[in-house]
Simulated scan of single mutants.
Amino acid sequence: MYPKTFDDLIYEFQKLPGVGAKTAERYAFTVLGWSDDEISELAETLVNLKKKVKKCTRCGNLTEDELCEYCKNTNRNQNIICVVQNPKDISVIESMQQYNGVYHVLDGLINTQKGVLPDQLNIKTLLNRVNEKTEEVILALDPTVEGETTSLYICKLLEGKCKVSRLAHGIPVGSHLDYTDAMTLLKAFEGRKSS
Results as ranks from 00 to 15, higher is better:
T144C: 01
L67E: 02
V105R: 01
L16P: 06
C71M: 04
G170A: 03
L46S: 04
T149L: 15
L67C: 09
L167W: 08
V116H: 01
E148F: 10
Y153H: 13
A168Q: 03
C155T: 07
S194L: 14
Y27F: 14
D107Q: 13
L158C: 15
Q78I: 05
V116Y: 01
N131L: 13
I80K: 10
E135T: 12
G160N: 08
K187I: 06
L186S: 03
D36Y: 12
V116D: 00
I80F: 07
L9N: 00
G60N: 13
V53I: 07
T125E: 00
V130Q: 00
S194T: 11
C56H: 01
M1N: 12
L141P: 00
P143G: 04
R129P: 01
E69F: 04
Q120W: 08
S175V: 09
T149W: 06
K156E: 09
G160F: 08
P3D: 08
Q98Y: 05
A140Y: 03
G160R: 06
T180G: 03
R192G: 03
E66K: 10
T112Q: 08
C155H: 00
E159M: 13
N79I: 02
L139H: 05
Y153S: 08
F6E: 06
E135M: 09
L177W: 00
H104G: 04
R26M: 13
T5A: 06
V83K: 02
C82H: 00
A182Y: 05
L67Y: 05
D142Q: 10
K163Q: 14
K156T: 08
R58P: 00
L62A: 03
I80M: 15
K88F: 14
K50E: 14
Y103Q: 07
L167Y: 06
K187D: 12
A188H: 00
N122W: 09
L42S: 11
L186A: 02
S151V: 01
N128F: 11
Q14E: 06
L46W: 07
M1Y: 11
E12W: 12
E190N: 09
L126Y: 03
H104C: 15
Q113S: 07
L32G: 11
W34P: 01
K88V: 12
L152K: 13
S165P: 08
T45L: 12
E132D: 12
E132Q: 11
P143W: 01
C59Y: 03
K22S: 14
D142Y: 09
C82L: 02
T184V: 05
N48G: 13
C82D: 03
L16W: 08
E146N: 10
E38A: 06
H104Q: 13
N77M: 11
T23H: 14
Y179N: 13
L32I: 09
L49E: 15
Q85M: 14
I81V: 10
V145D: 03
T112L: 08
A188F: 02
S151C: 09
S35F: 05
V19F: 04
D36C: 13
I93V: 10
V31M: 07
P172Y: 04
L49F: 07
Q120V: 08
T134F: 02
Q113M: 15
I123A: 02
L9Q: 04
R26F: 14
Q85V: 11
L42F: 12
I80D: 05
D178V: 03
K55Q: 15
N79R: 05
K163A: 15
W34R: 00
V47Y: 12
L42K: 11
K161Y: 14
N100W: 11
Q78W: 04
R192V: 06
M1A: 07
A188D: 01
P118L: 06
I39M: 05
K161F: 08
